[in-house]
Amino acid sequence: MAVAAAPDHLFHLRNNFYLGSFQAAINNSDLPNLSPDDAVERDCLVYRSYIALGSYQLVINEIDSAAATPLQAVKLLALYLSNPHDKESTIASLKEWLADPAIGSNALLRLIAGIVFMHEEDYIEALKHTNAGGTMELHALNVQIFIKMHRSDYAERQLRVMQQIDEDHTLTQLANAWLNLAVGGSKIQEAYLIFQDFSEKYPMTGLILNGKAVCCIHMGNFDEAETLLLEALNKDAKDPETLSNLVVCGLHLGKSSSRYLSQLKLTHPEHILVKRASSAEDSFERAVQSVA
C-alpha cells in the first residue's frame, strides 16, 4: 500500500514568495504545527519577503547571532543590499562562512551566495556555490545565472533537471518562461502563455505583470505592455523592473519616459539601465566637447 506524502504546510507561503506576493507571504505566515526545520524555512521566507519589500533594517534588527545558519544567511543578504557602499565586509563574512566545513554546504547559504555574486556580476564565483543544486531554488538560480552568461544551452540543461523533479512546480514554470524570453523568436509566445496561466491561477503581482509586459514588448505589442506596466506601477511605484520596462516601452511608443528614468535613478542608482543611460550621456558629452 502506498504511503501518502506528508502535507506541505509551506506550499502557499513559498508560492506567494516565488510569484512576488511578498506582503501576502508575510500576512499568511502564521502557520500552526510546523516542525523546527519548517519553522526556520518559514522565517527565512518571511524575512526574504521583507528584503524584497526593501525592509532591510527590520531583518537586520530581528535576526540575532543565535539564529540558525539559514537565517544568518538571510541577514547577510539584508546587510549586503542595505549598504551598497560597504559590500566588502559582507562578502568577506559570506566567504568565511562558505569556507566553514560545518555550515558551508547549507543550501540556503549557497543560494544567498549565488544571489550576492550574481549581483556582483561574478557569475563564475556564483556557480561555484550553486551549480551542485540540491533545491529547486538553486536550480532556478542556475538558470538565471546561465542566461546572464548568454549560455542558454546550459540553462536548458538545468531546466530539464527541474522538469524531471517537478514539471508543474512554480519555479520550473518560471525558469521555462525566463529561458523562452532569452531564446526569443517563437518561444516568446510560449513564455507569454506561462505568465498568462499564472495570472489566471494566482493574484496578479508585479512579477507576473512584468513577465507578460516583457513578452508583449518582444512581440511589438507596446500598448498592451504599457497597460500591464501601469497596473504593476500601481502595485509598487518603486519597482525597478516596472520602471525600467516603462522607459523601454515609452521609447518605442514615442512617449517621454524621463520621469520613470528619474524615479529609477533615485530609487535604484545601481540598476543596469541607469548605468547604461549615464554611460551614454557621458559619451555624448565627450563627443560634444570634441567638436565644440
Results as ranks from 00 to 15, higher is better:
residue 192 Y to Q: 13
residue 225 A to K: 06
residue 173 Q to G: 02
residue 217 I to K: 11
residue 256 S to L: 03
residue 253 L to E: 14
residue 188 I to R: 06
residue 167 E to R: 12
residue 209 L to T: 10
residue 168 D to K: 09
residue 223 D to M: 08
residue 262 S to Q: 06
residue 266 L to M: 10
residue 249 C to D: 12
residue 222 F to N: 15
residue 186 S to C: 01
residue 266 L to T: 07
residue 254 G to C: 08
residue 183 V to N: 07
residue 173 Q to A: 00
residue 202 Y to L: 07
residue 264 L to R: 05
residue 226 E to R: 13
residue 190 E to G: 01
residue 247 V to D: 05
residue 164 Q to H: 07
residue 199 S to M: 10
residue 242 T to G: 05
residue 212 K to G: 02
residue 233 L to R: 12
residue 195 F to D: 10
residue 196 Q to K: 11
residue 242 T to W: 04
residue 205 T to Y: 01
residue 254 G to I: 11
residue 261 L to S: 01
residue 219 M to R: 15
residue 267 T to H: 10
residue 214 V to C: 01
residue 176 N to I: 00
residue 272 I to D: 15
residue 167 E to N: 11
residue 242 T to Q: 10
residue 168 D to H: 05
residue 227 T to N: 10
residue 240 P to K: 10
residue 164 Q to S: 08
residue 176 N to C: 10
residue 215 C to F: 03
residue 181 L to G: 02
residue 197 D to C: 05
residue 243 L to Y: 01
residue 262 S to E: 14
residue 171 L to P: 08
residue 263 Q to L: 14
residue 254 G to L: 04
residue 174 L to V: 09
residue 225 A to V: 02
residue 243 L to A: 02
residue 225 A to L: 06
residue 182 A to D: 13
residue 224 E to Y: 05
residue 227 T to F: 02
residue 261 L to C: 02
residue 244 S to R: 06
residue 266 L to D: 13
residue 254 G to D: 11
residue 164 Q to N: 13
residue 212 K to C: 07
residue 212 K to V: 14
residue 178 W to R: 10
residue 207 L to M: 12
residue 253 L to R: 15
residue 184 G to K: 07
residue 217 I to Q: 15
residue 255 K to C: 04
residue 220 G to N: 06
residue 252 H to T: 08
residue 271 H to T: 06
residue 258 S to C: 02
residue 170 T to C: 03
residue 200 E to D: 15
residue 241 E to Y: 04
residue 165 I to R: 06
residue 266 L to Q: 13
residue 198 F to L: 10
residue 241 E to M: 09
residue 198 F to D: 05
residue 171 L to D: 00
residue 192 Y to F: 08
residue 166 D to N: 13
residue 240 P to Q: 13
residue 196 Q to F: 06
residue 225 A to T: 11
residue 270 E to I: 03
residue 191 A to P: 12
residue 220 G to T: 09
residue 180 N to T: 00
residue 189 Q to D: 15
residue 208 I to P: 14
residue 240 P to I: 05
residue 173 Q to T: 03
residue 195 F to Y: 15
residue 175 A to W: 03
residue 172 T to W: 02
residue 165 I to Y: 01
residue 257 S to R: 12
residue 235 K to Y: 11
residue 193 L to N: 15
residue 170 T to I: 13
residue 249 C to A: 04
residue 221 N to Q: 14
residue 213 A to V: 06
residue 214 V to I: 13
residue 202 Y to R: 06
residue 184 G to D: 09
residue 185 G to Q: 05
residue 200 E to F: 01
residue 234 N to T: 14
residue 178 W to P: 08
residue 204 M to V: 14
residue 194 I to L: 11
residue 224 E to H: 07
residue 171 L to C: 00
residue 210 N to T: 12
residue 255 K to Y: 07
residue 271 H to M: 08
residue 170 T to W: 00
